[in-house]
Design a protein around this nucleic acid. Structure first.
Length: 431
RNA sequence: UCCGCGAUAGCUCAAUGGUGGAGCAUUCGGCUGUUAACCGAAGGGUUGCAGGUUCGAGUCCUGCUCGCGGAGCCA
């Protein structure tokens, strides 16, 4: 039998139907009982009048603990007072499995308790809304690239060495071959893919063992990384802004109910349309100085710096051409100014920080060799990567978008830990 | 790693160095329209761990553990 979902109830008004789900909440008032059912797609209040149902069913409605799994039968009717617009006039009720003393009650809870019970917290309305939006964002990402002829190419998660040589990575023993590391980026592999297929993207988990302890960091997070052959920095920025517009507008169009549950101000999201402002690092430094920040040219932008800059704009802002010293070895230098890298970061509004980091890649073999030496990276580990410049090198560009930061921004969350089902944080690896 | 804050009932929090309480949850009773329902009653405690000061420590001191907020690092 086909199960009916609460989100499709408009098709069943006036009909007697059966729904399956869990008890979200329950209220009783003598001869009338209210059971709120949730099924992952929505919420429905089922009303049981004493005269309308058997004494057994009426008794049963009283015994239901929060999160008991149940099957309800009754007539669906329009009800203006109900949040979803519908209500069920209950005639029958079956318990599938009982639940008693469910830990997460409808009252306030602390974050430690909620994180310890993350496997149950996921059932709460806001968490369900976030997970549904996360799914929609992932779908938008795949639709966008697939629609443009990109090929999804998975990069390895176990890697022989650090990609950028800077971050601290998780390390593990790899049989008799020494150490292996959990990847911090699929990018170098995506570059090999771009030389094979033209346009590719990788989409998978990445890992950082940095002891970062802020609301903007996870040790395990998901990143999507497009890489395009025969594309320069401007092409890269064109792609990034079209990409962001597509994601945000898709979510606004399809996830209005979820955004409402999260009390997200969608006016700010509606602004996310092309063209996005593009400023150089030099211009960004000017903005900082105008706002009274003592900023030294050559430094990377810190969290508060990013917020000050993004506050100048009503939509995400692209900051390009950073000092090459603060950027990765593989980024191409600006032919106009050797001190600059052809890099671009996209800063999200409202203080959500960097959601995209990308660049045009160094395609010249000799220059790349120099960079590897300057960064004291082990040349052996990059032999295969250098081959990409040896055999038919072409200008190419790409970027990485942090999924959880994007989810966090679009949902208006105050911490990244709610943007992923089971977050991995410096002091937490359970549940 | 650094700076700051915290740990008391299942949960969220009170308690001047002097008999550890409330709300919610749970159980029982009441109520025919509740929206975190409401009203009444009951049960529920090794005050994070280990020391110390004191006639007396949830409260003061030291160390540890766990967590939270922020910085740095980064997406």
């Amino acid at each position: 039998m086909q199960n009916i979902n609460i989100k499709d109830l408009s098709e069943y008004v006036g009909q007697q139907i059966t729904l399956k789900g869990w008890v979200y909440n329950k209220r009783a008032s003598g001869k009338i009982k209210f059971v709120v059912l949730r099924d992952g797609t929505g919420y429905l209040q089922c009303v049981y009048f004493k005269g309308n149902v058997s004494p057994e069913v009426f008794e049963l409605a009283d015994k239901l603990g929060q999160e008991s799994s149940i099957e309800v039968t009754g007539m669906i009717k329009d009800e203006k007072r109900a949040p979803g617009g519908f209500e069920m006039d209950g005639t029958d009720l079956k318990i599938i499995s009982e639940s008693h003393d469910y830990p997460i009650t409808p009252k306030d809870h602390g974050i430690e308790f909620l994180m310890d019970n993350r496997h149950l917290w996921l059932r709460s309305s806001k968490q369900v809304a976030i997970l549904r939006i996360r799914h929609r964002i992932i779908k938008a990402i795949r639709d966008f690239f697939d629609g443009k002829g990109f090929i999804l190419m998975d990069a390895p998660i176990l890697t022989p060495s650090a990609v950028e040589g800077t971050s601290t990575l998780f390390e593990t023993e790899y049989f008799d071959l020494g150490k292996a590391y959990l990847t911090q980026s699929g990018q170098l592999y995506a570059e090999a893919g771009a030389m094979a297929l033209g346009k590719v993207y990788t989409f998978g988990p990445t890992f950082r063992a940095e002891k970062s302890k802020t609301r903007r960091h996870l040790t395990e997070f998901w990143m999507v990384e497009p890489e395009v052959a025969f594309a320069d920095l401007n092409d890269n920025m064109d792609l990034a802004e079209e990409f962001l517009e597509f994601i945000v507008q898709s979510v606004i169009k399809d996830m209005a109910d979820e955004l409402k549950i999260l009390e997200r101000n969608t006016e700010l999201l509606k602004n996310v349309k092309r063209p996005l402002p593009r400023i150089s690092y030099d211009e960004a430094v000017e903005i900082l100085k105008k706002n009274g920040i003592d900023f030294q040219w050559g430094n990377d932008l810190g969290g508060t710096d990013e917020t000050v800059i993004s506050n100048q704009f009503d939509r995400p802002v692209m900051v390009h051409r950073y000092p090459s010293e603060v950027k990765a070895f593989y980024m191409k230098r600006d032919p106009q100014n050797e001190k600059l890298a052809l890099a671009v970061d996209v800063l999200a509004p409202e203080g959500y920080g960097e959601i995209i980091g990308g660049s045009q890649r160094e395609d010249n073999l000799d220059f790349l060799l120099e960079r590897i030496k300057e960064h004291n990276l082990p040349i052996e580990a990059f032999e295969w990567y250098l081959d990409l410049r040896k055999y038919g090198s072409v200008p190419h560009s790409g970027f990485g978008l942090g999924l959880e930061r994007t989810v966090s921004w679009i949902c208006g969350l105050d911490h990244l830990r709610e943007a992923i089902p089971f977050p991995r944080l410096i002091y937490r690896k359970t549940p």
